[in-house]
Structure formats: C-alpha cells, structure tokens
Design a binder for these strands. Structure first.
Lengths: 205, 205
DNA sequence: GCCTGAAAATGAACATTGTTCAAGAAGAAT
DNA sequence: ATTCTTCTTGAACAATGTTCATTTTCAGGC
C-alpha cells in the first residue's frame, strides 16, 4: 500500500456524498429552520441510507455541528472581507456585514447560536474558538482608533461592542419580537456605533 | 347552577395540578435545559397521566409557552422594581437587574428566546407583546435624560440599548462562548452604558 | 344515599424520529 | 479469481410527542 494518501474511487465518492449531505442539511435548515431538520429527510434528499448519515457524522448533532461550523467560517469570511483602510468606516462595515449575513442567513445563524447539545455533552471547542474569533473582528480597528487605551480594555470593548451589535440585530430580525423596524435597522446601527464612539472621545465625522 | 363562578372541589384540584405542572416544568427547564424537557418526566413528577398534560395545555408547546409566559412576567416584575427616582441610576439598575435575572435563570431565559414553534405555527401574540414591553423599560428614564430629543428616536434608542445589553449579557453568560468574563460583566456593562450616554451628550457623574 | 349525565383522567396504542447493528455489497490488495 | 477490509444498507429498536376509547370522578337532582 502506498504511504501517500491516494485518491481512491471510494474516497472520492465518499467525500462527494459528505459534501452533498452537508449542503442538503444546510438548505433544509436555511429554508425550514433547525427544528424541522430530520435525518430521514436529509438521507432521502441525498438518496442514501439513514445509516450513512451516521457513518459520516456519528450522530445527528454531528451533522448540525458541521453545518454550524461552516456557518461561522462563512460569517468570518464575510467579516474579514470588509475593507480595513479606514478604521471608522471598517466598524460600520462590520456591523453592516453582520446585518447582511444575518438577513440572508437568519436560520443558519440561529442554528449556530441556539443549538444545544444533547444531555450535557460539551460544546465543541473548535466552534467556540471560531465564534470567539468572529466576535473579535472589531478589535483591530478599535486599537487604531484608541491607541492610548489599555490593550485589555480594548479587547473587552471590541467583544462587547460586537455582542451589542449581535443583540440588536438578532432581536431586530426576529419577525416575532421586532425590537427595531428592519428597514431602519441599518441606519440605526450606524448611529448607535457613532454614538458609542463619540462617548469614547472619537469625533463624529 | 350558580352564575357566579363557584369554586368546586373539582376546579380547585384542577387548578392546583395546573400550577404544579407549570412549576415542575419550570424547574426541569431551569436545571436541565429546554431540550431535556420530556412530557413523561413532567407527568411522572406530578404523578398524573400523560394525557392530563395534554388536557391542560393542548400540546407540549403549550406547556413550554406557559412557562415562558411566566418567565417574561417575572422578568418584567424584576425590571419594574428598579427604583426610578434617578434616571441615570435607573438605567444602570435595569442592566443590573437583567444581568441578575439572566444569571439566576439562564435556562429559563434561553427557553424564552430560543424556543421555536412546530412547523410554521405563529408565535403567540401575547408573549410577543410582553417581550416588547420588557424591552421598552429603558424608555422612561431615557425620556427624562433626553427631554429635547425626538420622541420616536428615543423610543427606538431605548429598545436598541436594551437589545444591546441583552446581546452582551446573553453571549457573556454562555459558558461556552464567553465573549466577556462573567465577573467583569457587571462593571463592564455599567461602563458600556456610561460611554453610550456620554456619546448622547449626557455627562458622566 | 342513589342515580345520572357531563366532564375529566387515564394509559395503551400510535406516529414520528433519532440510533444501532447484523448482514450484505463494493472495492482494494494480492 | 480470491480474500480481506471497509462501507452501505435498512430493518429493528428506542425515545418521545400525540391521540382517543374507556374508565373514573363528581356535581346536581331525586
């Protein structure tokens, strides 16, 4: 046997199907919500047996977590793509990017934040770390805007600011408990950030 | 038969059990999380049949929603109890009160915000309204602090501010994705509010 | 106290859905 | 072609929400 990983026909098919399973599951979550996701629906859509889902992901949570993992990655990618030339504009861009992502992928984001593990099984460390990373995106621009502040304070501030944005958006987008009208959300978010920055001593432009 | 509601023995027992069912369900949610709540566990703990749970609440969601309804009421009571003599102190008190409630009843609050209806059944209007009410508690003190602002703006601002606090707390309390260390949360929240108020032109004390 | 009709309680049976695993199919190695 | 490993399958099982025919309870009238 070759030491080098060979791309056997079997492996290719297996990977292919793994990707398909994830894609189908994602679409089902995105369109009908996490609660409506059923193993049998996924298996049928992919035209494979129920057992194969288990072979691939261990259990149903495994599939959900895989989708959630990719959701954080997509979110991070979107946040990272925000131009960083101007720190002030970057902060607004980050809030906008999050709002955009939350609008387009409401159910996927909900799945990420609302999914609970069975029993008391621990939440996967890697997803934790990825979410933490995503919530730290405001750190860099804030460091540039507040060069004289204590680094620890800025680190905390950046996560709080993004958590605040998250709270405003996630509640604002719940059609059910509209804390803020959607159409105004964007401008209001920008205003909110400006106000907070002003409180930090950064002049409005 | 009397027109006046008579308190028959039957009615008393029924009400008694209804209260017990709710209490048990609440404790189970509070200690083991919404996902671990099972009809059979509740029925067994109350020593009644499964069917009685259905007679009382229609379906399982009905029981959960009843618990959630009482959770909003408890939250609102706690927020309303915050002294309102000094608007600035009141704002801090409201954030503290929410933090306290979220700390003591983490799972109940999660149940309120994370529970999704089966299929596409609509979320009960009354709970929506109650949550909206709870999220408007910052309105009164902000009106006093910003007497010259547009009333509509203040209404939006108050909901955004509370949503922000909600976001910071709910993420901060997730042991799993600690955006902000719990012990610092309290002081940091106060600081966050002060900064935002400063941005609104209200001098720090 | 007994009878009777309405209301409630019961829990076995059913429906849905996550999970397991023995048997078989498919492919790789020789 | 044969063997050996690995993967796939889906029937069976387990857990859990839901229903409903039957039984029990009990208020009201006699």
């Amino acid at each position: 046997m070759n030491i080098v990983q060979e791309e056997s026909r079997r492996d290719r098919k297996k990977l292919q199907r793994r990707l398909l399973l994830i894609e189908i599951a994602r679409q089902l979550i995105a369109t009908k919500g996490l609660r409506s996701l059923k193993v049998r629906d996924v298996a049928e859509a992919v035209e494979c047996s129920i057992g194969s889902v288990y072979n691939e992901f261990g259990d149903f949570d495994g599939l959900i977590l895989t989708v959630n993992r990719e959701t954080v990655l997509a979110l991070t990618a979107r946040l990272t793509a925000v131009p960083s030339d101007d720190p002030l504009r970057q902060l607004h861009g980050l809030a906008d990017a999050y709002l955009g992502f939350a609008t387009e992928h409401a159910n996927l984001l909900r799945s990420l934040f609302e999914h609970r593990m069975e029993d008391d099984r621990p939440f996967p460390e890697d997803i934790l770390a990825m979410v933490m990373d995503a919530f730290a995106v405001m750190h860099a621009p804030l460091v540039r805007l507040l060069p004289d502040h204590d680094p620890g304070d800025v680190a905390l501030l950046s996560r709080m600011m993004f958590s605040a944005v998250h709270g405003i958006i996630s509640l604002g987008l719940e059609e059910r408990m509209v804390a803020v009208p959607p159409e105004r959300l964007r401008e209001r978010l920008a205003h909110f950030i400006d106000t907070h920055l002003a409180g930090l001593g950064i002049p409005r432009r």
